[in-house]
Design a protein around this nucleic acid. Structure first.
Lengths: 207, 207
DNA sequence: GTAGAACGGAACCCTACGTTCCCGTACACT
DNA sequence: AGTGTACGGGAACGTAGGGTTCCGTTCTAC
């Protein structure tokens, strides 16, 4: 399989991946940055999406669908209440769902389908929360909305490359879970803590 | 006391307050937004600061000095190791120091004095951390750099007005402290959790 | 009454970015 | 092989936004 069709199909994916990477790193990034990251020209983007807003809506919708998928998978496992809830949290954080949805929403006018999917994610979050509280493994004074804001805080972590940031997000999620779980306990934190050299980049004017 | 001098002195403070509010809310905000918030004209700003960059450096420097002051005050109390450390955390979060420093750094070229003050804050953070660990009240697998990233995460919280955001930051700081303290335990979380209506604003195009 | 400081805000200029357009290229079909 | 056509590259265009400057006005001090 090769030829123009093949390149077009490859570009479809290339562009989406690039857009995800670029816009999660900076929701206000220019469209030219996406094209460059994807290694394609601007027109390759505009052939697929009529406008920047359409591309953002697509990304946001994909993020919501990913959230729904991850949450449903985690909820399907009813054996260990805490482990099921923890898998849900880890999955959402790993998918960086908040970056794809919340941080992009507000930069465009939401569609009706987006609204429906958002309602679904909200329902799933309430379901996961309710089960964990009912099972007595999650402290009852945190609400589903608290968990949502926790996701947002973790999504704000930007340090080093994409993988390093993902690693750090899991590290601080683990820390947060130590505060969430009943009974409270300290578990091993994954990934190395930030090095001084990593933090020092905060003071350099960004590239 | 009245007259032009008095208004000028008042404007000095008005401008700084407005700049703090505007730039912590949006580090990329235009200078005109600061002037409007302060209720003054643009020239009132440019009479005091030669450029936007100079204003940002001033804010950042003030933020560092505030950090140093808060940390030194908390460290001065040696009676209760945990309470001293907790006061340090609460103070830094309340001052929203990360918003004033980290989020503004990188948007301008740092001065030498800024570098020195930053080094001092870093040293204070290490000192506070070291004391708490030595006293056995802080889990030893979190580093000072972890605490710094925790501050950054809390600074990312934006919801409702300034006071509401500050309240939520304290709420999640309290949650985080439950994961940090030795022995682990769940304490009452301050402030009400986010209401659904508050979260729904995430999906509205911003004003 | 006048000189001058402080101010408000319009005007200027430049950068950045979304979108369009033109052209080259290479595949598909004859 | 030749040619029509879809696709992609990237320059060009138009516009909006924002930092800085500048000018006219007001109010104080003497």
């Amino acid at each position: 399989m090769s030829g123009r069709k093949a390149q077009a199909a490859r570009n479809d994916e290339l562009i989406l991946q690039a857009a995800r990477a670029v816009f999660t790193a900076d929701p206000g990034a220019p469209i030219a940055a996406v094209a460059e990251k994807a290694g394609v020209g601007i027109s390759a983007l505009y052939r697929r999406y009529p406008s920047k807003e359409a591309l953002l809506q697509k990304l946001c919708g994909d993020g919501l669908k990913l959230y729904i998928e991850v949450a449903e998978r985690a909820l399907a496992d009813e054996s260990d209440p805490w482990e099921s809830f923890a898998a849900y949290l880890r999955g959402i954080v790993e998918a960086d769902s908040s970056s794809l949805t919340i941080k992009l929403a507000g930069t465009f006018t939401p569609t009706e389908e987006l609204g429906r999917d958002a309602a679904r994610t909200s329902a799933l979050a309430v379901e996961a929360h309710g089960r964990a509280v009912a099972a007595g493994v999650l402290r009852p004074d945190v609400t589903p909305a608290d968990v949502a804001l926790l996701f947002e805080q973790l999504a704000s972590i930007k340090l080093g490359g994409d993988e390093r940031a993902a690693q750090l997000r899991q590290r601080y999620l683990t820390l947060a879970m130590d505060a969430l779980r009943v009974p409270p306990a300290h578990r091993d934190l994954p990934g190395p803590p930030p090095a001084d050299a990593e933090l020092a980049t905060r003071w350099r004017p960004q590239a």
